[in-house]
Every structure is written in C-alpha cells, then in structure tokens.
Amino acid sequence: MQNAVELHNLNCTFTSGSFQLRAVDNVNLSIAPGEFFSLLGPSGSGKTTCLRLIGGFEQPTSGVIKLFDTDASRLPPFEREVNTVFQDYALFPHMTVRDNVGYALMVRGVSRAERVRRSDEMLETVKLGGYGSRKPSQLSGGQRQRVALARALINKPRILLLDEPLGALDLKLREEMQIELKGLQRQLGITFIFVTHDQSEALSMSDRVAVFNHGRIEQLGTPRDLYDAPRTEFVARFVGSANVISGETLHLESKRQYALRPEKVGISSASSTSPSSGISSLTGQLQDIHFLGSQTRYEVLVGGERVTAITSGAESCEIGSSVTLTWPADAPRLLEVQM
C-alpha cells in the first residue's frame, strides 16, 4: 500500500558554534493515507522539528522524506502537497478572514468570485459562516484556530500538519475542538499529522501515536498499545501515569523495572486480606490520600518504593496505617533496560 508519509533515517542537526543539537535523530516512520497520526513528546523532544521537516520549513541533515512515494526531501514548502496549521495560527493580520482562507487559491490565480465562494463555503464547514469580512484581530482564540484550519484545508491537501493547534485554547474549548477535529478528519479523509505534548489529547484523537524523546521515537503504536504495553520507563511515565517499580519489590525478575498503572492497583486495610489466585499483593504503609472527586489517590510506601493506587470508591484506610495493595498478576509490564 502506498504510504502518505515515509521518513527514512531522517536526521536534523542544528549547529550553533561548536554546539550541536540532534533535534531529529535517525527517525523512521510511515503514515498511512487517512490516518490520524500524533507525534507526542515533551518540549525539545524533536516532534515539532519532525513536523517542520515534513512541511519543508527545515532541511534534513540526512535522510529521505517521501510524500505519496515521491521524494520531497529537498522540495520547498510551496511545492509540497501538505498544508499546516501553525501553533499560533500565523493568520495574515492585514487581510480579512475571507482573504486569509482564500490565500492558497489566490496565489494559484483562482478568480475572485470563485475564491469568495469557496472561502465562504470553507468558513461554513468550520462553523464561522458570516465572519468572512472581519480581521483576525477581531476574533477570539478559538475562532482564529478555526480560520487557520479553514485556510489550511481549502486546497484539499492530502496531508494536514497540525503543530500544537489547541495549545493556546482553554480546557473546555480544547475538548470541543478535539472532537471537531477528529470529526473533520473522518469526514474529509485527509491524513492528519498532529503534534502535541498533551498525552490525553494524543490518546483520545489518534489512530497511532509516536512517542518522541531526545529526537528519537521511543515507541510507536495505537493509543491502547502505548497505554497497556509501554516498552520503556519514559513511555510508561509520559503516557498516562505509572508506577515504575523494581523487580525485587514485586518479587519478579530482579534488576529490571516494571510499570504498573495506578488504577490497576486496589487497596484495602491490612487485616481484611484473603489471597486469591491470579492476584498479586504487597503490604505497605499508607503515606497520603488525595481526594480527586470521582477518584481517590493513595500514596503507599512499599519496601522503600512509593506506589500510587487510584480507586473509584473511597476505602476506609488511615494515613500511617498498614495497607495491602492488590493487582492482577499480569498487570506489571516489564520495561526495556535503558541505555
């Protein structure tokens, strides 16, 4: 099958004097047409540089970028069938919303009437009908975001790049836009490549996620894969929250680390324990309780390691008392040894 995007041994090194930064370090990746693909990682992990390489705003130091089987490594942005929604939208301040949206048509010489018609149509799609003659400065953050989206989509690109597009929006608006973006992507069937540092955003929207760390892909998979089977400590901690516990404490393979999701761990006061098959348990001392509304978080000290348990109900345990932690025996995931 033809891939929308293929990255082969992609490297991008920034040099400043004698200082060198390997922003993107030997990345290999293929993204299928119509896929919602996220690049997830903390700031400085290389996810944005990777996106900018696909968009053509940075030049790779080495490696190949293929867009629909065509080598695009050295093509300037205006020769690529890719459009971008920029982090701070990058709307043209001196143009109306309509002219912003119609810009890609204008530079291709589409007639004024046709441009107005298609821009207004596109604005309807992003629920901004009637806003065409305003200036970007007269819009709210969420509206600007929609204009940026409309502008990038008007030319029906085969690939849309989104660089932390929801970062500047408040929580409620962000959740709305997540749903809308996902819906728009399904409706248009365009490949979305989405950069974010927000793991819940990546998990909820994406078909697949690549987790970046230090310019490298740490793990690539479906959101469920990443969550249920993190391969490294970094992924376990960055995607959701995780207890990373030594094998010694868990009475499993020694000198190795295991990831255990807090919500897999149950808690009960020490006396009320009756061991059963398929369930592992450990006793420890309850250090702290945090009431979170729908959930309660317990911090427990087990053999010198801190273990977090999250339960939906409230257990009758007292801080400082001895408690028993239980979890399904197959819940701890063996993590790869880190170099």
Binding site: F57, P77, F78, Q87, D88, F92, A152
Partner: peptide
C-alpha cells in the same frame, strides 16, 4: 512574524508572491 512567511509558503505562494 517569521511564521507568516512560512504560512504563505506553506499555502503555495512562491517567494515573489
């Protein structure tokens, strides 16, 4: 802003445009 120039290029404008 430099990203306006990138956005223009991204939308298919040649440098002269």
């Amino acid at each position: 802003p430099k990203n306006l120039i990138q956005a223009s290029s991204d939308l298919g404008a040649r440098p002269a445009q």
